[in-house]
């Protein structure tokens, strides 16, 4: 079966891969590109574990057909770190114990980045609604919300 050749920019690097047309972008990233940071928790867009930025918009990569990514710019959790320097969100998640098992963490980091890119000073309620598409079963969200608040503060002060 002929596969489709896709050219993208992922985490700043030009990347091309071959894929079946019906394959999800999530599976293409995980199986073809080898980036397993985005996770599949549901495959139906209900948990946010597969969140990526697709052309700067937060998206469930499980709901994107891989060929749609042709020519797109993609950011995954692996690209959050800048030359070895953690993003303030990553640092605040670590310091604030905003993860337990960690499976949802990549999705939360991406969704939180998307929020702070748009709204550098969100209220607690805005944070909670912006992260409502990301399920976490371990933390009860408390420490995640606090970590995003702290990261927002640090980023505003920078």
């Amino acid at each position: 079966m002929a596969r489709t050749h896709i050219t993208t920019v992922i985490n700043g690097d030009e990347v091309d891969f071959l894929t079946e047309d019906s394959t999800s972008l999530l599976n293409a990233l995980r199986d073809e590109v080898g980036l397993t940071g985005a996770k599949e928790g549901c495959g139906t867009g209900d948990c946010g574990s597969c969140s990526i930025l697709l052309d700067e918009r937060v998206t469930c990569s499980c709901l994107v057909f891989a060929p749609e990514a042709n020519g797109a710019n993609i950011l995954t959790v692996e690209g959050l770190t800048d030359a070895g320097e953690l993003h303030p969100l990553q640092q605040c998640f670590l310091e604030g114990a905003a993860l337990q098992c960690g499976i949802c963490t990549p999705g939360f980091l991406i969704a939180a980045k998307a929020l702070l890119d748009k709204n550098p000073d969100p209220t607690e309620t805005e944070i909670r609604y912006a992260l409502a598409g990301n399920l976490c079963r371990c933390t009860g969200y408390d420490k995640i919300v606090r970590a995003v608040q702290e990261a927002a503060l640090q980023m505003r002060e920078q």
């Binding site: 397993t36 940071g37 985005a38 996770k39 692996e78 959050l80 953690l86 990553q90 998640f93 990549p106």
Partner: peptide, 10 residues
């Protein structure tokens, strides 16, 4: 776990 390196089951 914050950088996506952790290897989970899948």
């Amino acid at each position: 776990k914050v950088t996506g390196k952790a290897q989970f089951g899948a």
